[in-house]
Design a binder for these strands. Structure first.
Length: 453
DNA sequence: CGACGGGACGC
DNA sequence: CGACGGGACGC
C-alpha cells in the first residue's frame, strides 16, 4: 500500500454524466479528471466512473461524503470507493479497514501517548500502538495509528512531518476468527450485536503498568469515552466495563435514528478504576476483530482556571524534560525557574537581546542556507524555535530531527541565516544551550527512478 | 560531543 | 450488481 490513491471508483446510474459528476465532486477538492466508462459500440455509460483528485485526502473526503448519495432525482444512490491501482487485477472494493491505519517511524523515546498526541491533529485516533521488542519491551521506533476515517489517515500522511515517513499500513494478513465479525461488514451497513461476551476472557490479574501513561493535562479523569468501529449494544458495553468495579454510569451515544455512533461514555466512581479500565480495555478486541479505543474524557471537574492550567503546563514541561533527560537526571525543575517563566507570560527566555519578531518566508521559498542546531540538554519545542529563529528574517521552516537533539533552520536569505548564527550560537534559550552552525548539504536523494504521483 | 537513512504488527 | 480511455514529458 505505497501510494494512497487519489482516484475514486464510482458506481452510478447509467444516466449520470461526467459533467454531473464533476459538479458534485469538485466541492471536495481539485478534480483533475472525470471519466465515465462507456460501451465501445453503443457509447452508452456502463454506470461506472473514475474521478481523479489532486490529493488522496480530497478523494477520501469525497468518498465519505458522496457514498450513498442520490445525484439526480429518480436515480439510484451511488457507491464510491478508492479505486484499485490500474495494474491491479483485483476488483474487490477497497475497504475502510485498509485506508484508516498509517505506519510511521518515530523516536524510540516515544510512548503511545506521545504518538497519539503527535497524530491527533489530523483526526480522532481510534487506536495506536508502538512496535516493541517482545522480550525487553523497548520501542523499535515504529508505530501504527488507526483513525476512524480514510480522510483523516490521508490527511496525516500528507501533512505530518516528513521525518515520520507516514504511509498507509498494510492490512494485517491474519484472518482466523476475526473474519466472521469484521470481514462481512462493509461501509454503511449496520452490524447487529447480540453476542454474549463471557466467552472473551481478558486478564484481570496483573497490576496496572503506569509507565507510558500521559501525565499531561486532560488525562486521568473518572470518565472514559469508548470508540468502536462495529456497532455494540448498551448491554455489551455495560457488561464489559462493569467487570471493573466502581462503574457508576454507562451510556451509548446514539444519533437521531437511534443507530449507534460507535461511541459510549463510561464513568467510574474512582480514578483508579478508570485508569485500570483504560489500561486493560484500550485496544481490546470485542468482539474479536473490533478494537475498542478507550480514552479519558473531561469529567466536568474544573481544570480550566488559569492557575490550574499553568500548574498543569509546568508539570507537563517537567515530564517532557524528564523523558528527554532520562531517569539519571530526573530531577524536578527549580521552582524559581518555573515561576518566572509563568509570570513573564513569555515563552522565550534567553541570555541575549533578540530582534523583534519577523514574518516567516513563504513555505515554498527556495532555501538559500540551512543552519544546523544542536541542543543541550534537550531540544526546544518547535514554536519556541520558530519564535527565536524567525527574528533575523527570511526563516522558511524549522525542522527537528525526531529523537535527536538536533534541528535544521531553513532560510530564504543567506545573510539572515548568517546573522541568526552569529547572534544565537552558544546562547541559552529557556535553559537550553544551542550550538548554531552551517548545515552540511542534505544527502542526495540518490539516483532512484522517480516515482509517479 | 551532534547530521537528515531506516519500515511491519502474537490485537 | 460494478473495474480501466486517451495520449506521450524525457530518462
Amino acid at each position: 500500500t505505497r501510494p494512497t490513491s487519489s482516484r475514486l471508483f464510482a458506481v452510478t446510474s447509467r444516466s449520470i454524466t461526467e459533467d454531473e459528476l464533476r459538479d458534485s465532486f469538485s466541492v471536495f477538492g481539485d478534480v483533475q479528471g472525470v471519466w465515465v466508462v462507456k460501451d465501445k459500440q453503443t457509447k452508452e455509460s456502463k454506470g461506472i466512473a473514475y474521478v481523479k483528485f489532486a490529493k488522496s485526502s480530497q478523494a477520501c473526503l469525497a468518498m465519505e461524503e458522496m457514498h450513498g448519495k442520490v445525484l439526480m432525482d429518480g436515480t439510484k444512490p451511488i457507491k464510491v470507493f478508492i479505486a484499485q491501482s490500474r495494474s491491479s487485477n483485483r476488483h474487490r472494493d477497497v475497504e475502510d479497514e485498509e485506508l484508516t491505519r498509517i505506519f510511521v517511524m518515530i523516536p524510540k523515546t516515544f510512548t503511545e501517548e506521545d504518538l497519539k498526541d503527535t497524530f491527533k491533529e489530523y483526526g480522532e485516533i481510534e487506536y495506536c500502538v508502538i512496535i516493541k521488542n517482545k522480550s525487553t519491551g523497548e520501542s523499535k521506533g515504529l508505530g501504527y495509528v488507526r483513525y476512524h476515517k480514510p480522510s483523516q489517515a490521508a490527511h496525516a500522511i500528507e501533512n505530518c512531518d516528513k521525518t515520520y515517513r507516514a504511509i498507509l499500513a498494510e492490512p494485517r494478513t491474519k484472518t482466523t476468527v476475526t473474519e466472521e465479525y469484521s470481514g462481512g461488514m462493509s461501509r454503511g451497513e449496520y452490524m447487529g450485536g447480540n453476542d454474549s461476551m463471557n466467552q472473551y476472557a481478558f486478564p484481570m490479574a496483573e497490576p496496572v503498568n503506569y509507565q507510558g501513561m500521559d501525565y499531561r493535562s486532560g488525562d486521568f479523569t473518572r470518565c472514559l469515552m469508548i470508540s468502536t468501529r462495529a456497532a455494540l449494544s448498551q448491554e455489551q458495553i455495560f457488561s464489559l466495563f462493569d467487570l471493573i468495579p466502581g462503574m457508576e454510569y454507562c451510556e451509548l451515544q446514539r444519533d437521531n435514528y437511534g443507530m449507534s455512533k460507535g461511541h459510549a461514555l463510561v464513568r467510574y466512581n474512582n480514578l483508579g478504576s478508570a485508569v485500570y479500565a483504560k489500561e486493560k480495555l484500550n485496544g481490546f478486541e470485542y468482539p474479536p476483530g473490533n478494537r475498542l479505543a478507550v480514552n479519558f474524557v473531561d469529567d466536568g471537574e474544573d481544570r480550566s482556571s488559569p492557575v490550574s492550567r499553568m500548574a498543569m503546563q509546568l508539570v507537563a514541561a517537567q515530564m517532557m524534560s524528564a523523558v528527554w533527560n532520562g531517569p539519571a537526571t530526573n530531577q524536578v525543575m527549580k521552582p524559581h525557574q518555573g515561576y518566572s517563566a509563568v509570570s513573564n507570560m513569555s515563552r522565550v527566555q534567553t541570555d541575549v537581546n533578540l530582534p523583534p519578531l519577523k514574518k516567516l518566508a513563504p513555505p515554498d521559498s527556495k532555501s538559500k542556507e540551512r543552519l544546523f542546531v544542536v541542543f543541550s540538554p534537550s531540544p526546544l519545542p518547535l514554536d519556541v524555535l520558530e519564535d527565536v529563529f524567525c527574528r533575523f528574517g527570511s526563516l522558511i521552516e524549522v525542522h527537528l530531527v525526531p529523537g535527536r537533539k538536533v534541528g535544521y533552520m531553513k532560510y530564504a536569505d543567506k545573510q539572515c541565516a548568517d546573522e541568526a548564527m552569529a547572534v544565537l550560537h552558544g546562547r541559552v534559550v529557556n535553559g537550553v544551550k544551542m550550538k548554531v552552525m552551517l548545515a552540511d548539504p542534505p544527502r542526495e536523494e540518490s539516483h532512484k527512478r522517480p516515482r509517479t504521483t
